[in-house]
Write a protein that binds this DNA or RNA. Structure first.
Length: 295
DNA sequence: CTCCAGGTTCCGG
DNA sequence: CCGGAACATGGA
């Protein structure tokens, strides 16, 4: 496929790929390499232009949701200080359109893990049971199908470092494989119905279900509430309130942020994480600075 | 060595 | 309904 160029003003490839919604892209020189629908792709951004190899620009537009109405989305957010700071910090961040099964599988393994760990576990699962895809840039592996994964053993998955998540991923793969939950039927359900259906799967609770709805089902109102978002909501919207329960947070998130609440969540999430990392670096600097000697 | 990480599930008030 | 605890693993 011929290399192509795509004008993508207001889009930030690096920010989008490193915002914790997707775990299977690799840096390659000044660009990124990964699979889109099992086709190897290399994308590099220079200013407002994307340089694309391996797939069509149309594929990139769809996968990275370059067609999302960002002006309308930003306009729909509530006006408060936390949202203003978060949106200002995240220009160009898009919520991608991921394949459902892969999104579900990786987020099942995400519980109590940091992003780099999730990437590592996911890579191990791909390399053991996925299909190797020829790529000019680096070896790539598709995410194994439910059928393929269903044939693995729990011990196999534990060997990938999944720990207690192994039986969850395995059990979910088996249920999808048997057809007791049908992912391709979710589209016809309401948000609540689809969420309930996903929650039938082992290892899938509200948070993971909402990740799947938001990142792979175009349900822009779905708000995954993890520890980070929980912290942000408590600090910014429940100031000095005692004992804000999880269901209270969920009700608030569902009613306050509007039709694109999932986008609001992703901006708040990324902003919280980046400012926390900065704070962490500052602390390290302070702690490692030489102590004054007292004689 | 200790602490905690994009949670879920089960159990006892 | 709500709070606690167990659940593996690895990196800081």
């Amino acid at each position: 496929m011929k290399p192509a160029r795509l004008h993508a003003p207001g889009f930030d490839l690096k920010l989008t790929l490193e915002s914790g919604q997707v775990f299977n892209w690799h840096t390659h020189d000044d660009g990124f390499v990964g699979l889109i629908a099992d086709r190897p792709a290399r994308i590099e951004q220079r200013d407002d232009w994307l340089f694309i190899e391996g797939v069509t620009p149309e594929t990139v537009v769809h996968h990275f949701a370059l067609d999302h109405p960002m002006a309308e989305i930003l306009d729909s957010f509530p006006e408060d200080e936390a949202m203003r700071a978060a949106t200002a910090a995240c220009p160009g961040l898009r919520i991608m359109r991921q394949p459902m099964w892969e999104c579900l599988g990786t987020f099942i393994t995400s519980s109590m893990k940091q992003v780099p760990h999730i990437r590592k576990m996911s890579a191990a699962v791909r390399e053991l049971w996925g299909v190797g895809v020829d790529s000019p840039w680096r070896p790539l592996f598709s995410y194994p199908t439910p059928d393929k994964l269903a044939s693995a053993s729990e011990a196999d998955l534990r060997a990938c470092g999944l720990g207690f998540r192994a039986p969850n991923l395995l059990g979910t793969a088996r249920m999808i494989s048997e057809g007791s939950v049908k992912l391709d039927q979710l589209a016809s359900l309401s948000d609540d119905e689809a969420r309930a259906e996903l929650c039938k799967l082992p290892g899938v609770g509200e948070k993971v279900a909402n990740c799947v709805l938001l990142f792979s089902c175009e349900r822009m109102a779905a708000v995954p509430i993890d520890v980070w978002i929980g912290r942000v909501l408590r600090e910014k919207y429940f100031v000095r309130k005692r004992k804000v329960t999880a269901s209270r947070l969920r009700d608030f998130a569902d009613s306050y942020f509007g039709p694109y609440a999932g986008y609001a969540q992703q901006f708040l999430f990324h902003h919280a994480r980046t400012t926390a990392r900065k704070k962490c670096r500052d602390n390290v600097r302070i702690n490692t600075s030489p102590l004054p000697h007292v004689h």
